[in-house]
Write a protein that binds this DNA or RNA. Structure first.
Lengths: 129, 129
DNA sequence: GCATAGCTTGACGCTTACGTAAACGTCATG
DNA sequence: CATGACGTTTACGTAAGCGTCAAGCTATGC
């Protein structure tokens, strides 16, 4: 049961990004793929991390923020105090995401309004033909 | 019934941004406040535009994309073909927003998972006390 | 009449997030 | 064996989005 691995090129293609970008993320400490010689070898874990990074980017988070979140998933501390901190942190992240969802919903609602007005305009044009 | 207006400083404070940022948006053609002499005077319309800009930024859109959307709200063309284009455009924007909402929801779900695991860990620590 | 608060226009600086080019190694294939 | 496909590092370039002076105007209160 040998685990599948990926090359940097495969991941870049799969997620529609570039080699440069992936290397940059490694440089910033967001990825740490295995090396076989000098060549990077990405395991499933690295692939998931890359997905997390790219999703974070799509949502407008900075790489620093994303690094913070990714590390939350990795650490999973055993100690009591650390766990409490982590849970508090999760709360903050959730708030940020909920705020973002509210923004999205508002924007969608306004878009709906606009489309409705457009369709009304179209109808008027059809009637007065 | 004189309409209320705002100074650049008032808007910066209200929306927790800076004079520099607002001026930058004007420079980029996203805002075009009235002038009394050299001083900018912002009307309700400008204020709304600023809100749209800032929300777009929070969602990770570029200023160019935001400019595009803002102009959609402004133009409201009277001609038939233009209206069809606009409606198509609205569809694209909606898709982008829905994709973003999916991303948010996924991230929230994973956050929930993580928190659950943390709480389970805390419980184990309490039990074995 | 002068200080203070708030506005103005430059203009240069800076960080983030990569793009891009140079120069090179490695492996498979015709 | 050389040609291409893939990988590597190093390093400079660049666009976006502002921050940060500098130098100056303007109105208002004391």
């Amino acid at each position: 049961m040998s685990e599948r691995t990926w090359s940097i090129g495969e991941l870049a293609e799969e997620f529609d990004t570039t080699l440069r970008t992936i290397r940059f993320y490694e440089d910033r400490g967001l990825l740490a793929p295995e090396r076989q010689g000098t060549t990077r070898v990405f395991h499933a874990r690295d692939r998931v991390r890359l997905q997390l990074i790219l999703r974070g980017k799509r949502l407008g988070f900075t790489l620093d923020e994303i690094a913070h979140v990714i590390n939350m998933y990795d650490e999973t501390p055993g100690e009591r105090g650390q766990l409490a901190f982590l849970i508090a942190d999760i709360g903050k992240r959730r708030e940020a995401l909920l705020a973002k969802r509210r923004d999205v919903n508002e924007a969608l609602a306004e878009l709906d309004d606009l489309e409705e007005r457009c369709r009304a305009d179209l109808d008027r044009l059809s009637d007065s033909r």
